[in-house]
């Protein structure tokens, strides 16, 4: 219903591609909430957009596509900034588009761009997830009891994969009102017969004593080593640090952003279509290490990752 009404809306004009309209509707209805899923859907929408593109004979593809992208993006975000990781993706995609030679044919250009997008999802998300799962599994082996906060699909996948590989551990899931998103993680862990504890974020000091490792998700790592994560993560990391428990952040390199920030924006930072939860900064000194698909790194190595992945602007 919602999708239809958005399609009919005359104010949006016909310039917006239906794939983007559908994506925004699904994000707004919170059908997809996690950044990784949104990123994959975003790439899929972009692919559809590029495939249905018709190159006018008098324009070069690179400049024409570049100009067409802008309204699509501002429609999706409603004028607000994109989530950092997706902004990163868009930046790289634009580089790809600009790299198209002027005499590039429509077919060749489309092929090149969709290949790049496919490769992005495969290498930077899917394979990266697997690599991170493997790195984390070794850490879980010695940990026995691991604590996590709220729900992050990468953390969920990692825990399930490690359990499947025969690693034995107990998971403490912390959660917060009002969303209680951690219930989703708890449900899938229970289904897989992993032994779990569950409590609200105020129980952190009660649970942290039995834990040997804290594993958190995040939605971006900045070049000063600070991490953007769901509200409450920094507190959990702080209590863990006070109890001498290492804090690992699972972050594929596509979430590394060449940007610095040292504070959490106040109550103004609200949710947008693509950001369903309020976010905060985790200071770098509360993070023991970041698990990326390259290796396990200290947060201070964020600039090196940016360089290695050519994400520096």
């Amino acid at each position: 219903m919602r999708r239809m009404s958005l399609l009919d809306s005359p104010s949006q004009g016909s310039a917006i591609h239906p794939a983007f309209i559908a994506l925004k509707a699904r994000c707004e209805s919170r059908e997809i909430v996690d950044l990784d899923a949104i990123c994959i859907e975003f790439v899929a929408a972009f692919k559809q957009f590029i495939l249905s593109y018709n190159k006018p004979s008098d324009k070069a593809m690179s400049r024409d596509v570049d100009a067409l992208i802008k309204p699509q993006l501002s429609y999706i975000t409603g004028g607000l900034p994109l989530p950092l990781a997706i902004g990163n993706l868009v930046k790289q995609l634009k580089q790809e588009i600009n790299a198209l030679s002027d005499d590039c044919t429509e077919e060749k250009g489309k092929q090149q761009l969709t290949d790049w997008l496919d490769e992005f999802v495969e290498n930077r998300i899917q394979l990266a997830f697997q690599a991170i799962s493997l790195f984390t599994r070794d850490k879980l082996k010695g940990a026995h009891v691991v604590l996590t906060y709220s729900w992050c699909p990468l953390v969920e996948q990692t825990l399930l994969a490690a359990h499947e590989d025969g690693v034995n551990f107990h998971v403490c899931v912390l959660d917060s009102y009002p969303c209680q998103r951690g219930k989703k993680l708890l449900n899938s862990l229970c289904k897989a017969d992993i032994s779990c504890s569950y409590g609200l974020i105020t129980s952190v000091s009660h649970l942290i004593k039995q834990c040997r490792l804290v594993l958190l998700g995040c939605s971006a790592i900045l070049s000063n080593g600070y991490a953007l994560a769901i509200r409450g993560s920094s507190q959990v990391a702080m209590v863990a640090q006070a109890a001498n428990i290492p804090v690992l952040l699972a972050a594929p390199t596509y979430k590394f952003v060449d940007k610095v920030q040292t504070f959490t924006e106040g109550h103004r930072s609200s949710c947008t279509a693509l950001v369903s939860e309020r976010m905060e900064m985790i200071p770098a000194d509360l993070i023991t290490a970041v698990v990326t698909e390259l290796r396990i790194l200290p947060p201070s190595s964020a600039p090196a990752v940016l360089r290695a992945k050519q994400l520096v602007v």
Binding site: V173, N187, C190, D193, C196, S197, Y198, G199, L200, S203
Partner: peptide, 23 residues
Amino acid sequence: SVLPFSQASSYGGADVICPLFDY
């Protein structure tokens, strides 16, 4: 108050805790 009993079946083996105090 943390997880209602009505939802208990979805979280079979989980140990739900609600401590009152901190030291």
